[in-house]
Amino acid sequence: MDDQKKNNYIAPVIWGITITSLIIALTMTAKKAFAAIVPNQKIRGCDTHGCGSFGASRGGRKHEGVDVVVTPGTKILSPIAGKVIRHPFPYPGDIFYKGILIENEQYSVKIFYLNPTAIQNTTVKQGDVIGVAQNIASKYSPGMTNHVHIEVKDRTGKLLNPTNLFT
């Protein structure tokens, strides 16, 4: 093989590191901000009550979070390390459905449709059990895919699309 053909198969070297090894190293060390809240986490698609993606139409407004498919009774894990601020309610006047608000120096994460087990004003680690999924389909109909709803804001209060923040 002549020198011209050999050079086509040699990765470029920068400071003694090949581009390929640099890409592999960056990929392996890059960490997403959020841990999955359930094993095999999946965003709710569309069902008879709408779609679970960020920005999906909700009549005159947009969906401000993502819906993660769960089975009622599933343990929900904290996506971030932070402090449990409060246990909010998604529906005014309905105290059956509950949520949890966790904050740290970067994010504010609100998760609805779970019975919180993490106590208000305590600190949780990423991956700690923070609650148990409720049966949201019982409020709407069997046509609703059971899920928990996650909303994320940055430290300035700006609403974020959490889809790409998860590992």
Rank of each mutant, 00 (worst) to 15 (best):
Y107L: 09
H149E: 04
H63W: 02
K6S: 11
D2L: 09
P142C: 00
H147E: 08
Y9D: 13
N121C: 02
A11T: 13
P116Q: 09
C46G: 14
I37Q: 02
S78P: 03
L114N: 00
V132G: 05
W15R: 12
P116A: 11
P116I: 10
A81N: 03
P116K: 10
D94W: 01
L101G: 04
T123M: 12
Q134M: 13
A35N: 07
I19H: 10
N115P: 02
K75T: 01
V124I: 11
G65A: 04
T167F: 00
G59T: 05
D67H: 11
P116Y: 07
Y97M: 03
A35L: 05
Q126I: 12
P12F: 06
V70L: 06
P88H: 05
K5L: 13
A36C: 00
T71K: 11
V129C: 07
N104L: 04
T122Y: 08
G93Y: 09
K75Q: 09
I150P: 00
N146V: 12
Y113K: 03
G59M: 03
L22K: 10
Y107H: 10
I150A: 02
K62V: 12
K42S: 14
G73A: 07
I102L: 05
G45V: 07
Q106D: 12
T123R: 11
G82K: 02
A56F: 07
S141T: 13
F112T: 10
R155K: 14
W15T: 12
I10A: 12
H49S: 10
H149L: 04
L77K: 15
G60F: 09
N40L: 08
N8R: 14
D3T: 13
V13A: 07
G50Y: 06
G55F: 10
E103N: 11
G157C: 06
Q41M: 15
Q106R: 13
A137Q: 09
I80T: 10
V148E: 03
K32W: 01
F54D: 01
Y107G: 04
T20R: 10
T20H: 10
G16N: 15
A30H: 14
G50V: 05
K153M: 08
F89M: 09
C46W: 03
G59K: 05
C51R: 05
T167Q: 06
K6I: 15
I14G: 01
S78I: 00
N8Y: 12
I37W: 01
N40A: 15
A11V: 12
D2Y: 08
K139Y: 14
A137M: 03
G131M: 09
F34V: 05
Y107N: 06
W15E: 15
R86Q: 12
T71C: 01
V68F: 06
Q41K: 06
V152L: 07
I85A: 05
S21E: 15
P162W: 02
K5E: 14
